[in-house]
Amino acid sequence: MTLDAGETLAVVGESGCGKSLSAMAITGLVPPRAKLIADRIALKGKSLLGLREREWRGIRGRRIAVVFQDPMTSLDPCYTIEDQMREIGRQHLALDARALRARMLDLLRQVGISSPETRLSQYPHQLSGGLRQRVMIAIALMCEPELIIADEPTTALDVTIQAQVLRLLADLQKEHGFGLILITHDLGVVAGAADRIAVMYAGQVVESGPTDTVLSAPAHPYTEGLLHSIPVPGRTARGAPLGFIPGVVPRPDAPHTACGFINRCSRPVSACATPIALMPIDPAHAARCIRPCLGGQIVERHPATETAA
């Protein structure tokens, strides 16, 4: 996955396919028993691999900020909003108490919170889910990060609030120019929101490219299946059954001895029984498939000539 400054990358895929884990790996945080192995993780050209704990502290929250899925639990219930914002502000910003408080109030206003003084003095459980997610976004903005990872930021919210929060993120991005990794299992929100898409399956990126290209001409059969399973106004006929992908996602931690999609694929061949690399289709578009669909045609590619990742 790559992301240019100020750009939005949508990471899509079914629940459990490794979106959160892969995105959090960018910040060096993986579950206690997981081991982070990567060829390259870099921010603005500087490698983040093998950083020391101290060095990570200069990155996390400061240059890369995360907005988590569940605003109900991602704030500490024991401290007021002010306590929590101040703790993070103090960690990264050299502001005196008064300037820091002014900054917190300003941030809360920026995320559309109307009575910021009151909110500052409240505890998370006194706020609605939508408000809490706005507070999380305000915290993310605290240090003007270069990258914000929003991990399904609207999944836990009421439908009516979801659109508001997504619009807020887009507006803030225009204003502040941060890069945004928007993780979602909902292809419906991607079209207007992302510059590029990475489709994940079983722990791997199986297709990546510009949003329009991937949505209009998916190369990987998994992307195709995903798109057929959601109704698109104007394309899906009224009353026609929606498509679905038979079978279940294999565990992302299973060893990749074959194409991960082989058991659910509509067009498998025997050559699919080896690990498949992510292969470029054009400079901006890539798919992890030896029989991708290009320009409406299935094209045969040769895995032997490509090195497996």
Partner: peptide, 9 residues
């Protein structure tokens, strides 16, 4: 997880 992701010691 939030506290860690925001670089607190």
């Amino acid at each position: 997880r939030t506290a860690r992701a925001y670089g607190l010691p």
